[in-house]
């Protein structure tokens, strides 16, 4: 049985459909990548899985529980077993790096200080920021902040981690290290990982399964080998990052020439 089972998911922002009938299975112990053009709703999907947004139709089951039918306390119990790396990092700005990583431990356990220290330093070591532990979040670069957030997402040893764009803002070396780290963690800790990313090459390298989303639907799914062989032009263009092809770069709306020729908007 898959860890996460999404069935017939519909979600709207006002009149705009973000998802229209999406089905996704995320299998235990595997790395699943969710890819798609900017603005298709990948972050929205993660928030739906985490129970922060409510679908208009359809169900999301995590570990056999329907996320949106849980009571407040059951949802919070479930979230203890989910880690999430926010696109922005979402670090608490009034405490330093060490305390940020220690935050979930302090909130949910009664561990002695010495053990907390060891745990935190271990996680910070893994992301290469052990010696940055006394810095405040405002003093970190974007890439560093995201690595701290990654360390924080791992602290409670969850059953799954959702990574929202973990690789953006990383130099080639830390990118390689992070790709490795996510891959190794998944094996060593028997984690289930969901990666949302635009870095097709790096993600395809470690992902066991890939979903391509666009226009509110799953366009294609399969292993990276299958996707690379896909006959769909759309998939080929996206995986190779070609500028021309069926994937729209522009947010949908009237055509540019129509816009230029419609002076009635000018007041």
């Amino acid at each position: 049985m898959p860890l996460i089972k999404i069935r017939d998911l519909h979600f709207y922002r006002g009149d705009k459909a973000i998802f229209e009938g999406v089905n996704i299975d995320i299998h235990r112990g595997k790395i699943t990548a969710i890819m798609g053009p900017s603005g298709t709703g990948k972050t929205t999907l993660l928030r739906l899985i985490g129970g922060q947004l409510r679908p208009d139709k359809g169900t999301i089951e995590v570990d056999g529980q329907d996320v949106h039918k849980l009571s407040h306390s059951e949802l919070y119990e479930l979230r203890k077993r989910m880690g999430m790396l926010f696109q922005s990092g979402a670090l608490l700005t009034d405490i330093n790096v060490f305390e940020n990583v220690a935050f979930p431990i302090r909130e949910h356990t009664q561990l002695p200080e010495s053990m907390i220290r060891n745990l935190v330093l271990m996680k910070l070591q893994a992301v290469g920021l052990r010696c940055a532990r006394d810095m405040m979040p405002s003093e970190l670069s974007g890439g560093m902040a995201r690595r701290v957030a990654l360390a924080r997402a791992m602290t409670l040893d969850p059953m799954m981690i959702m990574y929202d764009e973990p690789f953006t803002g990383q130099d080639p070396i830390s990118m390689g290290t992070l790709v490795n780290l996510i891959h190794k963690m998944n094996e060593a800790m028997r984690l289930t990982s969901i990666i949302v990313s635009h870095d097709v090459v790096e993600t395809a390298e470690i992902a066991d399964f890939i979903y391509l989303l666009s226009g509110g639907k799953v366009i294609e799914k399969g292993s990276s080998v299958q996707l690379k062989k896909s006959s769909s032009q759309w998939v080929q263009q996206f995986m190779q990052g070609l500028p021309d092809g069926p994937v729209p770069f522009h947010y949908p709306g009237v055509s540019f020439s129509d816009d230029l020729l419609s002076p009635e908007e000018i007041v």
């Binding site: 928030r47 922060q52 999430m84 909130e107």
Partner: peptide, 21 residues
């Protein structure tokens, strides 16, 4: 500001209720 920098959302996902905390 905590809301706009996603700190409150972040807490929710760490299973810490931001209203209580």
């Amino acid at each position: 500001l905590m809301k706009s920098t996603e700190q409150l959302s972040g807490m929710e996902m760490m299973a810490v209720d931001p209203i209580r905390r």
